[in-house]
Design a protein around this nucleic acid. Sequence first.
DNA 1: CGAGCGCTTGATTGAGTTCAAAAATCGTGG
DNA 2: CCACGATTTTTGAACTCAATCAAGCGCTCG
Lengths: 179, 179
Amino acid sequence: MESIREILNLDTFVVVKKAKRGTIIQRAGVNTSLGYYVRKGLLRSYTIDEKGKEHIFMFASEGWLIVDIESQEFHHSTELYIDCLEDSEVVIFDRKDINASNLTKIQLERINDLLSRRIAALQRRVILLLSATAKERYIAFLETYPDLPNRVPQRMIASYLGITPQALSTIRGKMAGKN
Amino acid sequence: MESIREILNLDTFVVVKKAKRGTIIQRAGVNTSLGYYVRKGLLRSYTIDEKGKEHIFMFASEGWLIVDIESQEFHHSTELYIDCLEDSEVVIFDRKDINASNLTKIQLERINDLLSRRIAALQRRVILLLSATAKERYIAFLETYPDLPNRVPQRMIASYLGITPQALSTIRGKMAGKN
DNA sequence: CGAGCGCTTGATTGAGTTCAAAAATCGTGG
DNA sequence: CCACGATTTTTGAACTCAATCAAGCGCTCG
């Protein structure tokens, strides 16, 4: 499996940025044509609702890519914040440059593969959210992203799962008791 | 906005099929390299969980495309059923043929756009499922797909929203009362 | 060493589920 | 085109899972 980094030959039009834990890399709706490849560290993308509550859309550790495609394709509706959960090294590129840069067919095909994979992941997530209880979603999360629970605070895992930190704590308590 | 039909010049390697309402076009996990372009009518894709309960992943009316990318990219996990909610005319193509057919760069770029749009839609759906109440999700559904409520039974809208038909009925009752 | 943040635990509340049954609508065969 | 059976929607009561509210504990880091 090839990374976006190799596919695009990112180094040609790229800025590498080091950012400390807590740094907000992108505010909702600003600079939405930028993409972020995580070379080192851990990022997250999330929205903030009217009540001020955060909802985590995705995590991205080493080798992952975060792009707020939503804002780029449609100008209305959900826009994402992106920030660092650990000190990180991020390769920043501008989608406009990529599009203007006359990619080869092979590069385009591989981008298609990456997009398809993302769609597949989102499909699984939607179906989990539709059909599974909080506990089932938590177990699925542990199986899908075994390294993240050690690196991500529990309240953020809860946010990713769509439940409160208290509920997740209770679930974990029950699971620990039963095993 | 260009349809997949024009983009791929589908007529070259395509079967057109007419199917009556209720016909299952694809069973979970079978023939997952096929894609379905809806020329006329209305399709849906859905999973069935261990308890036999259906969860609708998406609807596709005229001009839309259904492909179970999940199963094609990964062989494990969620697989979708696809069936007709109305008598339909469906253009069936095989992704393998598409991939083998030496697409032009322009076609590839446009496929990229379509995939990005799908990702954007899924992103919105995930965030709605994470953050919104059943009522809010229903209102968003009405706004996003104004033609569907007339064509889709309510229990299926409920399934798409991730709630029971009874809950949807109650929500509708309250909304009708208040306006 | 203290202040603040994050996790846990418990009590209460509420949105949505489940179970059940009646009312409305649909669709099919005659 | 109508009538009847089957499916869908509505309504209501009891229940459940998770949210909210609130308090206490344990860490970490300044």
